[in-house]
Simulated assay, not measured.
Amino acid sequence: MTSNSGQAADPDTERRRPRSLIVSFFGSYARDVGGWIGVADLIALMSGLDVDGPAVRSAVSRLKRRGLLTPERLGGAAGYRLSDEGRRILAEGDQRIFGHRVARVQDGWVLVVFSVPESERRRRHALRSQLTRLGFGTTAAGVWIAPAHLTDQARGALRDLGLEPYAELFHASHLDFRELTESVARWWDLPAFQAMYEGFLDEYEPVLERWRRMSGPLGAQERKQAFADHLRTVDTWRRLPYLDPGLPPELLPEPWAGSRAARVFFDLHTLLQPLGLSEVRSVIAFSKFR
């Protein structure tokens, strides 16, 4: 996402790729079953999402190279466990995805002001990318803004990139010379956010309604479907709270699709995650007797 003429980053660019689905799997399920998953079991589970064995193996190999997964054999079976870095990243993701904060105007804003020399343009680009990923908007060249609750994340991004000497952080309040709603609409691409949330609703409100209409005992086939629907939902949703910093509701256009989209996500997560976890455990248990 960029402000002014920029567009919100498209969450579809990564989601549904095998690598993205596997990251979502480790975040949604692997930690609940001991943190390790056999490759054969992961292939069996991903087959329900139209991801074949070679694609799974290629994806986990890439995640291993990125340092997120560690290969480990258990009981003679090849598998993967989250690395320390992987656990850290997922823990941070849990906070952003499931504890998505909504800002208050009275809490103010954090400003990141930086001037990175041309000799460090790679790190300058990396900083802009990271601030975008955190949900920052831009007020001017080298001046980025977000609700104050993102201060620690901004500080962490600067430290990780070693750019503290080139930047300053400020806690700010908006004073003059225009309405804050007008300024927010310049700093963030709110229509793109609306379209992003409406796309989520178009895809997942029918899924929620279908599951709500189900009655009676749910069998093995329903567990498989619940796992697939839940993992797709999480994989689609998990980027949206990063692009959207949780702006104060009174500064957003009405009706704001993000509020309804969040309700749909959390309702689906509450409804389907236990069924999906049951499916994961059944696949893992079955593999022990093959």
Rank of each mutant, 00 (worst) to 15 (best):
G86P: 07
L90P: 09
H100W: 01
L90C: 06
R62T: 00
L69S: 13
R101K: 15
I97Y: 03
R87W: 01
L63I: 03
V56Q: 10
L69V: 10
L82K: 04
R88V: 05
T70K: 15
F98Y: 13
D94R: 14
R81K: 15
G53K: 10
R88Y: 00
A77E: 11
A91F: 01
V102P: 07
G75D: 05
L63F: 06
A91H: 04
D94V: 09
G86K: 07
G93I: 01
A78I: 10
V60C: 10
R81Q: 06
L63P: 14
L63K: 12
R88Q: 05
H100Y: 01
L68V: 06
R65A: 08
R57N: 07
V102Q: 15
R87C: 10
G86W: 01
A55C: 07
S58R: 12
K64Q: 11
V102T: 03
K64G: 09
G79Y: 12
E72M: 14
S58D: 06
G76K: 05
F98P: 00
G79D: 05
R66G: 09
R104P: 04
E72T: 09
Q95Y: 09
L74P: 09
E72G: 11
L74S: 11
G79T: 14
I97H: 12
G76L: 09
R62H: 01
A103T: 05
G93Q: 04
R87K: 12
S61R: 10
D52K: 01
A55M: 04
G75L: 07
R65P: 02
Q95W: 09
Y80G: 07
I89F: 07
E92F: 08
L68E: 06
A91L: 00
L90Y: 09
F98D: 07
E85C: 03
A55F: 00
R65V: 03
I89S: 07
G79K: 14
I97C: 11
R81S: 15
R65M: 03
R81N: 02
G75T: 00
G99N: 08
I89E: 05
L69R: 14
D94C: 10
Y80A: 05
G76T: 09
D84L: 12
P71R: 13
D84T: 05
V56I: 14
G79A: 10
R66C: 02
Q95D: 03
G75K: 08
F98Q: 11
V102E: 13
S83N: 11
D94K: 13
L82N: 07
S58F: 05
V60N: 03
R73W: 06
D94N: 08
G86Y: 00
V60L: 13
G67M: 03
P71H: 08
S83R: 02
P54F: 00
L69T: 14
